[in-house]
């Protein structure tokens, strides 16, 4: 019998929420908008945040194991984030909620507050996030939401077992792997290695079009961070090809010692 069903808590259908974000594709060439503060989105392709794919996949697998339950995906974002929600629905999630805003604020705590308000009365057994969003690299919304909800939280989970209302997660730390016990309901953020996310099948894509997607206009406060500038990364000074093959090694050593002063 699947582990999740052995616990009396989970005799009721397992309810899982996954918070997902619409982000520019990893291949995007970053062009800065004329205001000098935001990404110029013209021509940019958007995707479901890759870490959130692990979260969606994990939710689907737990529901499939249980044979019953519901997976709800929630995104806070611009109207176009509906497409991101449809992607998750095509993977197999049951319904979606868009907390619609004009723009996602830089302060992750404001995002967490809006998500927490939506999640609060949902009766979820598990709430999943990605470890981080690959656009803003904020690395915070999951654990902040957990704190606001008063729920236990494990971040950057790369391995997960759930049984009897309790979970054991593994997370990478410098020089090792932490094994962490936690009770359900809980908030987890997912890291690479947890699973291999599925691709939406054509059937899933067709089915997703008919699944419920609730759009809720949302207003956020600006929060505690003001964007001063989005800057190009510092130009790495023109590198040089020291030479070809083994013959170039002594010169490389000299440059590393005398010019770069790193040896």
């Amino acid at each position: 019998m699947p582990a999740v069903l052995r616990n009396s808590r989970f005799e009721d259908p397992v309810k899982i929420a996954v918070c997902i974000k619409r982000v520019p594709d990893t291949e995007t060439r970053v062009k800065i908008a004329p205001d000098g503060k935001l990404l110029d989105e013209a021509g940019v392709k958007f995707i479901l945040n890759p870490y959130d794919e692990f979260a969606v996949e994990e939710a689907l697998r737990r529901r499939e194991h249980g044979g019953a339950g519901e997976v709800v995906v929630i995104a806070l974002g611009a109207p176009a984030a509906q497409e991101t929600i449809r992607t998750a629905l095509a993977m197999g999630a049951d319904r979606g909620v868009l907390l619609q805003v004009d723009r996602v604020p830089a302060d992750g705590l404001e995002v967490a507050k809006a998500l927490a308000a939506e999640l609060k009365d949902g009766g979820f057994d598990l709430i999943l996030f990605g470890k981080m969003a690959i656009d803003d690299y904020n690395h915070q919304v999951g654990p902040m939401t957990a704190e606001l909800l008063g729920l236990p939280c494990v971040t950057a989970v790369a391995h997960l077992e759930i049984e009897g209302g309790k979970g054991v997660a593994e997370r990478e730390i410098e020089g090792g792997v932490e094994v962490v016990d936690f009770p359900l309901p809980a908030v987890l953020t997912t890291d690479k290695g947890l699973n291999e996310p599925r691709y939406p099948a054509l059937k899933g894509i067709m089915a997703a079009k008919k699944k419920p997607l609730d759009v809720k206009p949302t207003t956020l406060r600006a929060g505690g961070l003001e964007i001063l500038a989005l800057l190009p990364p510092p130009e790495r000074k023109e590198g040089k090809i020291v030479g070809e093959g083994v013959a170039a090694v002594p010169e490389l050593i000299r440059l590393l010692r005398e010019e770069a002063k790193v040896l």
Binding site: V30, I134, D135, D136, Y137, G224, L228, L231
Partner: peptide, 15 residues
């Protein structure tokens, strides 16, 4: 802080 996979830097002010 680096954002967009290090393809840009974001400068923020704490309010």
């Amino acid at each position: 802080r680096p954002v967009y996979a290090g393809k840009a830097l974001l400068k923020v002010k704490f309010l």
